[in-house]
Simulated assay, not measured.
Amino acid sequence: MNRIVKNYEERRNEILDAAESLFYSKGFEACTVNDILKTVGIAKGTFYHYFPSKEAAMDGVIARNVDKIIDRVQATIEKAAGDPNEKLMNAFLAMRVDDPAAHHMLEDMHQPANALLHQKSLKQLIQSLSPILADVVQEGIDQKIWRCSHPLQCMQIFLAAALSLTDEGIFEMDADSQTLIMIALIGTLEKMLGVPENEFLKQYSAHWATE
Rank of each mutant, 00 (worst) to 15 (best):
residue 58 M to R: 14
residue 60 G to I: 10
residue 92 F to A: 09
residue 71 D to F: 10
residue 77 I to K: 07
residue 52 P to A: 04
residue 118 H to M: 12
residue 152 L to C: 04
residue 84 P to L: 13
residue 105 M to E: 13
residue 52 P to V: 09
residue 112 P to F: 11
residue 136 V to L: 09
residue 105 M to R: 15
residue 47 F to E: 01
residue 111 Q to H: 11
residue 49 H to G: 09
residue 151 P to E: 04
residue 131 P to M: 02
residue 139 E to C: 06
residue 67 D to G: 03
residue 57 A to R: 02
residue 46 T to H: 06
residue 152 L to P: 01
residue 58 M to Q: 10
residue 129 L to M: 10
residue 142 D to Q: 14
residue 47 F to G: 00
residue 132 I to G: 03
residue 50 Y to I: 09
residue 72 R to C: 04
residue 152 L to W: 00
residue 91 A to G: 14
residue 64 R to E: 11
residue 121 S to F: 09
residue 136 V to Y: 02
residue 50 Y to F: 15
residue 103 H to M: 14
residue 126 I to P: 01
residue 75 A to I: 05
residue 132 I to Y: 00
residue 59 D to C: 03
residue 79 K to R: 14
residue 128 S to P: 02
residue 153 Q to H: 08
residue 76 T to N: 13
residue 106 L to C: 02
residue 142 D to N: 15
residue 133 L to S: 05
residue 57 A to V: 08
residue 122 L to A: 00
residue 55 E to Q: 13
residue 81 A to M: 03
residue 123 K to W: 05
residue 58 M to A: 12
residue 51 F to D: 08
residue 109 M to T: 07
residue 82 G to Y: 10
residue 153 Q to P: 00
residue 139 E to P: 08
residue 135 D to K: 10
residue 124 Q to D: 01
residue 96 R to Y: 11
residue 150 H to N: 10
residue 65 N to W: 11
residue 153 Q to I: 07
residue 73 V to H: 08
residue 89 M to Q: 07
residue 79 K to Q: 15
residue 50 Y to N: 05
residue 62 I to M: 07
residue 140 G to S: 12
residue 83 D to R: 04
residue 142 D to Y: 09
residue 97 V to H: 04
residue 95 M to N: 10
residue 73 V to R: 06
residue 139 E to S: 13
residue 114 N to R: 03
residue 149 S to T: 11
residue 97 V to Y: 07
residue 119 Q to C: 06
residue 95 M to G: 07
residue 130 S to C: 04
residue 144 K to Y: 12
residue 117 L to H: 05
residue 136 V to E: 01
residue 119 Q to S: 11
residue 103 H to I: 14
residue 118 H to L: 11
residue 131 P to G: 01
residue 90 N to E: 13
residue 100 P to G: 13
residue 70 I to Y: 06
residue 60 G to S: 08
residue 90 N to I: 04
residue 68 K to A: 15
residue 91 A to L: 07
residue 92 F to D: 08
residue 88 L to T: 05
residue 77 I to Q: 07
residue 116 L to W: 06
residue 106 L to Y: 06
